[in-house]
Simulated scan of single mutants.
Amino acid sequence: MSTPRFLTLPPGVTVLQIETEVGSFAALEALPVSGVAERWPALLVPGYTGSKEDFLAVLQTLAQAGRRVIAVDMRGQYETPGPDDPQAYTCASLGADVDAIAAYVGAGEPVHLLGHSFGGLVARETVLKGNAQLASFTLMSSGPAGIIGPRERAGRIMLTELPEHGIDYLWANRMEPDALRAGVPDDIVAFLRKRLLANSPAGLLAMADQVLNARDRVDDLAGSGLDLLVLYGEHDDGWPPVLQAEMAHRLSAECVVVPGSVHSPAVEAPETTAAALTRFWNAAESRLLQRG
């Protein structure tokens, strides 16, 4: 089978295997095609059932602003294997993994951390743990606590049907029909199937429980001292936009609404999203350097 068109790696983007003290993680690394990576690096963490490929459309643009950008598969996702132990997939455990990855990515420099959807809840734990050397934190299409709305229903279906029927059943009877009704191209549907079936079943179950039942830690995050950005699509069908706007207010965070986007701004509006991130990251760096 040929490689889906959207999976063709842009110039400057390569496959990377990250080795840490807590394990090995599949990643994509983007570097400037011209010039050097003179700015602090960025680490991008995907959401539930997602992967590093969810950031493919923004990697080259982000790197061209002069920084190294790395997107990863979390433990149990797609090309990063995971154990059968459900405790390996709590937000706290996955956040500790991200902590180790951030240390690798930064190599002594502060790192701009971004978490998409469930990845935001995970990366929030990295921030709150306080060990990582971070330059900023972005919550992309993420929320203050457990997910609500249409995507909550999808998570509950996963919890009830996966143990009884398995991943193949869920793909054939739930996810593939949804993708086809939405007009997703055949090559992308083929990739989505391959990715879902590569996930750890234990991880899918445990992460579903985590994304549904996460507790509100906004007040804790507000005291992190980091520059914070809340970025989401104007039509988000995960956490409602009004809830994310309220979270940004509680965090005293910058808030960016991406016009026309739903739950995946990096896919649906890559240039707008990359421009907003680059501006925020550059400003955060300037503020940190001024503070000495």
Rank of each mutant, 00 (worst) to 15 (best):
R5I: 07
Q244M: 14
D220S: 15
D84K: 14
A102R: 06
L139P: 02
A71V: 06
R181N: 02
G47A: 10
T14P: 05
N131Q: 11
A190L: 09
A123V: 04
L226Y: 06
M140T: 06
G225C: 04
V45L: 06
L62T: 06
N213I: 12
T138C: 13
P41Y: 07
V211I: 13
T272K: 12
L277N: 02
V230N: 00
M158R: 07
V267S: 05
S24K: 15
G183Y: 11
A245D: 05
S141H: 05
R291L: 03
T14C: 07
A222Q: 14
V230G: 09
T14H: 08
Q87V: 08
D186C: 09
S93M: 04
L162D: 00
A248M: 07
T20L: 09
G35F: 13
G23M: 10
S141W: 00
L231I: 15
V230E: 01
D187C: 13
G35A: 14
A202Y: 03
D186S: 14
P81W: 04
M140R: 12
A253M: 01
E38Y: 13
A283I: 02
A214W: 07
A26I: 10
H112E: 00
D220E: 15
V22G: 08
V267H: 04
A245H: 07
P144S: 09
S117M: 01
F25Y: 12
S264E: 00
S136D: 01
V257M: 03
D220W: 13
E19Q: 15
L28Y: 12
R151E: 02
R217L: 14
L212M: 12
V189I: 14
K52L: 11
A182S: 10
L205K: 04
P11L: 08
S24P: 15
I101G: 08
A154H: 03
A179L: 05
E19C: 13
R124M: 04
V58R: 10
G115F: 00
A26Y: 11
D99P: 11
E234T: 15
K129T: 03
L44P: 01
G115E: 01
G233I: 14
G225R: 11
P110C: 03
A172I: 03
V189N: 12
G225M: 01
S34Y: 14
A30C: 11
A283Y: 00
G35I: 15
A269H: 02
P110H: 02
